[in-house]
């Protein structure tokens, strides 16, 4: 729940602890951001810009810094875009298809279970397709989530062609007049060319069968991941045109700061945050709250 704290009040706290805006302050800020996996280039640029801002506005007191820091961080994330909370791109009428992709163990299947639960709560008719036909027990795992959430799962045998399973899923979704079909896929590391091609093929099948689909391609990113997440976002986007990110495992101590760089460099927004292993541990991503989360450690260090 740490990304849910009131952003401005916490930044207030933080800056109140330092009286002077000096080298120590910036050094500490730099450390805190690097520790949050924000990425070295982004951090350096940010700190440089902040220093300039401090000169320009002749800021001496850290209390005046709070808006400057928060503005800059949020600016990195949003760029020139509107500060809107990104939602799932669902169709008003007819079938919406969501394809979920990502590296091994990031949290795809679990997030699909949570998403199905959420959509069902909203009154949607949801169907799942077990497109991971490779990993041991992957179909059973999605099945268990289907049972848990009361959502049907379209599946074939282990080892069958994922594109064929997804094709089946679309057929079933149509004939049952489902609102949303969520497609699970096997985890794959982005440097495996064959596996990335397989994923692109799955996407092509969806495109061919349903105009304008998939309506969302969600990349699942483990918040514990470091700089490699940027390469994941880039390569998965090239293969499947990713439209949003699910940032998982934010209930741990990792901060997932790399999504700042991903949004900044690739313009891919985070749509959901995973905060645990239970059905209701999925939340809409709030960039302001998230940015505060990047500072939480600095706060704690200072109170020690």
């Amino acid at each position: 729940e740490k990304t849910r704290n009131s952003f401005s009040s916490k930044i207030n706290d933080l800056v109140a602890r330092y009286r002077k805006v000096d080298e120590d302050f910036f050094e500490e800020l730099e450390e805190v951001l690097i520790t949050a996996d924000v990425g070295i280039n982004t951090v350096m640029e940010l700190v440089e810009e902040l220093k300039m801002e401090v000169k320009r506005q002749n800021i001496k007191d850290t209390r005046e810094m709070k808006d400057v820091i928060s503005e800059k961080l949020v600016e990195i994330y949003y760029g020139d875009d509107d500060e809107t909370v990104e939602k799932l791109n669902l169709q008003e009428d007819g079938l919406s298809i969501v394809l979920v992709v990502g590296v091994n163990g990031a949290g795809k299947t679990t997030s699909i279970g949570k998403l199905a639960y959420q959509l069902k709560q909203e009154g949607k008719h949801v169907l799942l397709a077990a497109g991971d036909t490779f990993r041991a027990g992957a179909i059973e795992q999605l099945d268990a989530w289907g049972e848990k959430t009361g959502v049907d799962v379209i599946k074939q045998r282990e080892g069958s062609d994922p594109a064929a399973v997804i094709f089946d899923g679309i057929k079933a979704a149509r004939s049952r007049e489902a609102d949303v079909l969520i497609c699970d896929t096997a985890g794959r590391l982005q440097n495996k060319v064959n596996l990335m091609n397989e994923l692109a093929k799955v996407k092509r099948v969806i495109e061919r069968e349903v105009p304008d689909a998939p309506h969302d391609v969600l990349l699942t990113l483990d918040a514990t991941t470091g700089q490699n997440a940027l390469s994941q976002a880039k390569t998965f986007s090239e293969a499947t045109d990713v439209s949003g990110i699910i940032l998982t495992k934010l209930d741990g101590t990792a901060k997932g700061g790399i999504v700042l760089a991903i949004r900044n460099e690739l313009n891919i927004p985070v749509k959901f945050a995973g905060l645990g292993e239970k059905v209701d541990d999925l939340q809409a991503f709030d960039a302001h709250a998230f940015v505060y989360g990047l500072f939480a450690d600095l706060l704690e260090d200072e109170t020690e």
Partner: peptide, 12 residues
């Protein structure tokens, strides 16, 4: 441990 782990690896 996942080799893609970032700064949090030490805490873990």
């Amino acid at each position: 441990v996942d080799s893609m782990t970032g700064q949090d690896a030490v805490n873990v």
